[in-house]
Design a protein around this nucleic acid. Structure first.
Lengths: 191, 191
DNA sequence: TCCTTTTCTTGAACTGGTTCAAGAAATCAT
DNA sequence: ATGATTTCTTGAACCAGTTCAAGAAAAGGA
């Protein structure tokens, strides 16, 4: 039913016989068009989204009315606002498809029952959360250790295909500087 | 045996009868003196530390030979390098006691067996990892949205007692600016 | 195809924060 | 107490990155 997802789960946990059938009972597939919202700021986040195909961003609007992207998610990543999801309070973030995107959706109100039927998923989500946590902490370190230009070069070399997929101004926002500055970095490189 | 830890676990998961005895089999208590290292950069991280009393920091040494603190842990927080812990590769970070500290230690080589005996712990660690992840992502957003001065004021108001507990230069490092700059912020406030 | 919207570029003036250096104050060990 | 170490302060010169404004290029829709 969800080949990408079950393959991903099996990297970190062992699924018992019949797990696919149980997953199929609890999960839904949803498609989002480019620019469609998976979650809008102000709403309570009620689901965790696994990207089977496509690409999304999580962002908020700053006081100065500009978008600040805190996260991208591509194939084989989960994206949600865990803070809103667990506290059931309105989210500050919006999650939006950057391309046409297909997701496997785990709704909050089915999560506990699913974990009870398939306790291995607790392990799976524990491990991927810890990995994501380590990555997020490293990101802070990286931001403080390197200049904007270094961050861009590093990102470009780490995800060359991704840099082609998203508009430059979104990359600038994620990397923590202005689109104008990114444009100047690129001019310097190519000149 | 570990009153602070079991109380913390019960906030997020239900422990069965006899759980304390099992925990006592698998966990150890260790004390660290001020400045003692829980983990040194270059070593493989082999444990996860729950702070029952005291305070630690996780940091690395930059190219320019200065310390960069990416994390503080006080009472009721776990601290480790999840990346090194799970991959069993040498850690880039050191973890060091800032005060005399008492920890409950979960060693890596006992973790899987413990989780098998007490599957509720998978849930506990999943939930606290997700919470820590949400906090780490918010931290990046916060860094990009606010000036150094604003970050200091916010931290001071959020953790007034903690600001007293650690040297200013560690705070500056954690907040992502130089000790000199922090000194100037304070001079401005008090002048 | 042509018009509209979205995305990217360039320059000039400016600011938040760094760097370096030197000294003052506080804390620690004996 | 006293000397050694650790932590904090101050100033001047400097630079990475911002802001604002205006236009160019590219992509998208009927």
């Amino acid at each position: 039913m969800f080949p990408e997802l079950t393959a991903h789960i099996r990297k970190f946990a062992t699924l018992p016989e019949g797990a696919e059938a149980i997953l199929a009972d609890y999960l839904e597939v949803r498609a989002f068009r480019k620019k469609e919202f998976l979650l809008k700021a102000g709403q309570v986040c009620n689901a965790n989204f696994f990207i089977a195909k496509g690409c999304c961003r999580s962002f908020l609007i700053t006081e100065k009315d500009s978008e600040l992207i805190n996260h991208f998610a591509i194939e084989n990543w989960w994206i949600t606002d865990y803070f809103s999801l667990e506290s059931q309070r309105p989210s500050e973030y919006s999650i939006q498809a950057i391309e046409d995107t297909e997701c496997v959706v785990l709704y909050r109100n089915r999560q506990d029952a699913l974990f009870q039927e398939l306790p291995e998923l607790e392990r799976y989500f524990r491990i991927i959360s810890q990995k994501a946590l380590a990555a997020a902490l490293q990101r802070v370190t990286y931001i403080f250790m390197h200049s904007g230009e270094e961050r861009y070069e590093h990102f470009r070399q780490s995800f060359p295909e991704f840099v082609q997929r998203v508009p430059q101004y979104m990359l600038a926002s994620y990397l923590g500087f202005t689109p104008e500055f990114l444009s100047k970095i690129r001019a310097k490189r190519n000149g």
